[in-house]
């Protein structure tokens, strides 16, 4: 490869030898490189547009602040905190709620999904419950949850648990359903017991589906926690946004929004990395 080609590959245009020889690329998704250079460019263009927009005073800073104002708020809040808590405490408050709610959702949802995939009684019993609650947005339960357990940690964790639960139930059930009968038969013929088949065959076989479910659940939880904090909380990134909006402090609002986006993005990248490491066989069976 020439230097230029290497550079292009690194930049995410992916013209490796094979792709270059392909005459059909429209519709062949494997021939579509990730175009990292375009990503960088798009972020750059948007940033410049934002900067120019505020420098030329095209928008009222009350509606949309200048990047410098957001940056100033960031440096200030990260040193001085906001409303009794440091910036990191706000971020951690949101993250903590998600992690606990998400973990509980997995802890209950995965075994429940397995049971529903493996037993007629469990499937029949829980099917109407799962199918009824699944389409309801978790935020619809906020009023109830607040009545039950106030605006403390418990109400938000309960809400996130709800958000993650149904997704994980369905993912685990799909995972059980994806196991090839010949694998189960082979395991029985090799003398495995039911318990061993569950642990050594069904569980690992359903990991790809479970992981996909976890990624979806994480996304939903992150969105739900911010929304829940908007309604009722004393800390958290959502609370920051809400409190700032009452004083028309759009710079803090936008700072909050950026933090939410960045952390959500980071979580998904992390989970994708983890997936590649834990389930190297995914898509190769």
């Amino acid at each position: 490869m020439t230097f230029l080609q290497t550079l292009k590959m690194k930049a995410g245009f992916g013209t490796d030898g094979l792709t270059k020889r392909k005459t059909v690329t429209f519709g062949d998704t494997s021939a579509v490189a990730d175009g990292r250079m375009w990503s960088i460019l798009s972020v750059f263009v948007l940033s410049v547009a934002w900067y120019m927009g505020s420098a030329l005073e095209l928008v009222n800073p009350i509606f949309w602040p200048a990047p410098s104002a957001v940056w100033e708020q960031f440096t200030y809040i990260s040193q001085e905190g906001y409303r009794n808590f440091s910036l990191w405490e706000h971020i951690w408050a949101s993250l903590y709620r998600i992690l606990v709610g998400f973990a509980l959702g997995c802890l209950i949802g995965i075994p429940l999904g397995f049971a529903m995939g493996l037993s007629q009684l469990m499937r029949g019993w829980f099917d109407p419950i799962v199918e009824f609650f699944r389409p309801i947005p978790p935020l619809a339960f906020i009023p109830l949850v607040i009545i039950w357990s106030g605006i403390g940690e418990r109400s938000k964790i309960l809400l996130l648990f709800f958000a993650a639960l149904w997704i994980m139930v369905i993912a685990a059930r799909a995972g059980v359903g994806s196991v090839k009968l010949s694998k189960i038969h082979a395991a029985y013929s090799l003398g495995a017991t039911r318990k061993q088949i569950l642990y050594y065959v069904i569980l690992p076989n359903s990991l790809p589906e479970i992981f996909t479910g976890m990624r979806v659940a994480m996304g939903i939880c992150w969105g739900t926690v911010v929304a829940a904090e908007l309604v009722a909380a004393e800390s958290g990134v959502g609370f920051m946004i809400m409190a700032a909006s009452k004083f028309l402090a759009t710079d803090i609002v936008v700072l909050g929004v950026i933090i939410v986006g960045l952390i959500g993005y980071a979580i998904d990248i992390l989970m994708r990395k983890l997936e590649a490491k834990l389930i190297p066989w995914k898509g190769k069976a």
């Binding site: 010949s182 003398g191 495995a192 069976a285």
Partner: peptide
């Protein structure tokens, strides 16, 4: 386990190595 089965394909466990697959029966 007195009757072993060899299928056409796809009955191996992808999450295990070659050796782990072979060891499966005795391990159980």
């Amino acid at each position: 386990s007195d009757r072993g089965m060899v299928f056409q394909q796809g009955a191996l466990f992808e999450w295990m190595t070659v050796a782990e697959n072979i060891a499966f029966g005795p391990q159980m």
